[in-house]
Structures are given as C-alpha cells and as structure tokens.
Design a protein around this nucleic acid. Structure first.
Length: 106
DNA sequence: GACTTGACTAGAC
DNA sequence: AGTCTAGCCAAGT
C-alpha cells in the first residue's frame, strides 16, 4: 500500500458535504507532518476520488497549476450544500469522523 | 541517484 | 497577524 493509495482510500470515505484538510488526512494515515505529501497525491488523483472534499487547514481552496480547478472545487462544494464564508469552508463542515458533529447535509 | 518542486502546516519568533 | 523553517512523498530533471 503506497501512501498515495492510502490517501485516496481515506478521501473516498469523506461523506458528502464534509471536508478534511490536507493535514487531517495525513494525520489519520499516521503522518502528522505529511500534509504536503497529501497535496502532491491529490494533484494526480483518479476521478473516482472526491478530491474537492480536501481543503487547506483554513478551510480555503489551495492554489494549483490550473487556476480553473479552484473554481471547479468551489462549485462542487456548493453543489453539496456547503456555504463558503469569506472564501472558506466553515468549521462545522469538517469531518470529525465518528464523533460530535451534526450532519448538515440532506 | 541526487536535487527540485509542489493542491501543506504546526510551531517559533 | 505576517514570516520562516522543518518535515513529508512522489514525479520530474
């Protein structure tokens, strides 16, 4: 199992209308400082991966080579019912796994 | 095979 | 609240 594959497997488990930061993904895979490696993996991921559910630690959409990709990500998030505040995904949308949060998606 | 380059980030000033 | 740094991993040079 490569790191990349592990990243894709986890990202596929993020429920609709929820997000995870690059750092959170890395931490869950046992690499608390591997956020950057997650970003690299996401830059080349299969279409079967809901890549739009991964944002940066501030809830914002990170820059990339293809600027248009940023718009696509925002659109996809909004289509799932996520409302961005000041260009960021508000905290309640962050997937905390088993616990604590209320699912705002319907 | 060494070095660079990112969709990153927590911590230290 | 800005700036800098170290740490991560794979692809491209």
């Amino acid at each position: 199992m490569t790191f990349e594959a592990a990243v894709y497997r986890l990202v596929r488990r993020i429920p609709p209308a929820h997000v995870l930061s690059y750092g959170q993904v890395a931490a869950r895979l046992g690499q608390p400082r591997g956020a950057r490696a997650v970003g690299r993996a996401m830059s080349d991921c299969p279409d079967s991966v809901p890549w739009h559910r991964v944002v940066n630690a501030q809830g914002g959409i990170s820059r990339r080579r293809r600027v248009s990709g940023m718009l696509t990500q925002r659109i996809r998030l909004e289509q799932e019912g996520i409302r961005l505040r000041r260009g960021r995904v508000p905290r309640p949308y962050f997937w905390e796994g088993q616990g604590g949060h209320r699912c705002v998606w319907r």
